[in-house]
Design a protein around this nucleic acid. Structure first.
Length: 281
DNA sequence: GCCGAATGCCCAA
DNA sequence: TGGGCCTTCGGCG
């Protein structure tokens, strides 16, 4: 169940594993069989991520577009691979290494122009090349396009920020002390900038660490956090929590844009109005 | 063994 | 807004 950091990590690892190599391609499940035959024994050029979308570039201008949805994932085998499960949509194999793609809602052969169309439908990627000043400007424009919308809803919209999923929207709002149901028009411009920077920091850390981990010692957030034992598991501020790690109060859980939202009503108070109107920037 | 949920998203109404 | 879809896994009998 990946967010953008996981997809970018797949892209990096698969480029490292397969770039420049002649690859055997198959579709044990059968739903990608015709395309697999076209790709088989061709040269893999590069894997590329944009938000939660993954692209494989092959010699000859062929592009495979993948989206993992909720249940899709990759399995990577060193040495001899086991017989593929019947659910393997696409198997990529080079000597000594096999990568299985399982359960993706999207796995299709497209052209470079179609890839650009996919990107054009997406907002700025906090892990993209232009995540700095340009990313912030695009994020601000996309967020404020609908001033009455709740910020917690906006953050899940891939046209607002590509690659942000349920966990990162929850954690970023907690770290900035913003209630998810706050209408966008009640945010200050500084809130929007801080949210973008927080998302960028969190996703970069997730890409680096390979997990969505929390480090309370970092001065990422305005809220003082208690020290916490290190764990190897994914570790969250409020996602999945019953009580607030910071104040000890009860975390409220409610549906927002069809997903489960977690927020601390004390550390993320509702606002009556913004300090400075966001739209008058 | 079945059911529901899961870091997602699309579509119909 | 709700259901469908992709797959796996854990909780519950």
């Amino acid at each position: 169940m990946p967010e953008g950091n996981t997809i970018h990590r797949f892209a990096r690892d698969q480029t490292r594993d397969l770039a420049g190599r002649v690859v055997r391609v198959s579709s044990p499940q059968g739903r990608f069989a015709r395309e697999a035959r076209r790709l088989d024994r061709k040269t893999f050029l590069e894997a590329e991520a944009y938000g939660k979308h993954l692209f494989h570039h092959w010699r000859g201008g062929l592009v495979v577009h993948m989206h993992l949805g909720m249940a899709g994932h990759f399995r990577r085998f060193r040495g001899d691979a086991p017989e593929p499960r019947p659910t393997v949509r696409m198997r990529l194999a080079v000597p000594g290494l096999t990568i299985d793609l399982i359960g993706p809602p999207t796995c299709e052969l497209i052209t470079e122009n179609e890839r650009l169309e996919v990107e054009a439908r997406l907002g700025p990627d906090p892990l993209g090349r232009n995540a700095g000043r340009e990313g912030l400007a695009r994020f601000h424009a996309a967020v404020t396009r609908r001033p009455d919308r709740a910020i917690g809803d906006a953050l899940l919209d891939q046209r607002v920020a590509a690659g942000v999923g349920n966990i990162y929207r929850i954690e970023a709002l907690f770290l900035r002390g913003i209630h998810p149901l706050t209408p966008v028009k009640r945010l200050a411009a500084s809130d929007v900038e801080a949210l973008w920077k927080t998302l960028t920091t969190l996703l970069r850390r997730g890409l680096r660490e390979g997990t969505v981990t929390v480090d309370p010692s970092e001065s990422l957030h305005p809220l003082a956090m208690p020290e916490r034992a290190e764990t190897e598991e994914d570790d969250f501020y409020v996602y999945g929590a019953a009580t607030c790690r910071r104040c000890g109060g009860r975390v409220s859980v409610f549906p927002l844009s069809g997903r489960r939202m977690y927020a601390c009503p004390t550390c993320q108070p509702r606002r009556r109005r913004a300090d400075r109107a966001i739209l008058s920037r």
